[in-house]
Amino acid sequence: MKRFLWFTLPIVLTLVLWEIISRSGFVSPALFPPPSKVAVALWGMITAGTLFSDLRASLWRIVAGLFVGSAVGIFIGLLTGRMKSFANALSPIIQILRPLPPVAIIPLVIVWFGIDDGAKIFSIAFAVFFPVWINTHIGARQIPQAFLWGAKLLTASSMKIFREVIFPAALPFIIAGVRTGIAIAFIMVFVSELAGASSGLGYRISITHLAYRIDEMIAALIMLGALGAIADQLFVFGTRKLFPWIKFSSK
């Protein structure tokens, strides 16, 4: 109960303060609509069905981009982290691409892949790849030698060692990388939907800007923020359920 109060009270107070300021006459209600108007706009978006279709479009791009970027990042990271030859061969390329702000590739991606979902998923995957790769790489390199030596005495299968020793030993780092990737995926989906999209929360925010519907814009922003927070919490919850030993590993 106390936790619930600490969670809701700041939100309620912010909304009340916001409502008062918007209606006080000090600011233009058109530029700074009160939460009650935003709520009405949100309800309008729900009943018109645009909110649902925007959410679905953005979410699909995020999930697909995150999955592809993470899968490639984990795979390459385990290879470069555990095999010197791979690290030597791939590091220069990756190190040149890494300082590039991922949003900078979006114009090129549009030229290459057009404006459909594939282009957006590629942009997200590209951006997600780097934090996942670096974390996996570091995670795979820091594995205590005793784990590997011990495993070698107990099994001759290097596939088994890779799957059951190297992967879980690097997993806390991999999870940290993917979590960073989730935050980056939200940035990338928004930016990639600003230009050349016909659906998605980013697209909605950009056209409400043109239509001067600040109430709808704020409603879409709130949805984007809420979606990000929910995705992050779901990820933390899911990893705890799947890998219960990780929460203990800080001991």
């Binding site: 205590p144 005793a146 784990f147 030596w149 011990g150 005495l153 059951e164 020793v165 879980p168 030993a169 997993l171 890998f243 030993w245 990780i246 203990f248 590993s249």
Partner: peptide, 15 residues
């Protein structure tokens, strides 16, 4: 067939 027991990282924490 040799077995070894280590002081640190003796067992896998994920199992």
């Amino acid at each position: 067939n040799v077995g070894m027991v280590f002081q640190h990282y003796a067992v896998f924490p994920w199992f």
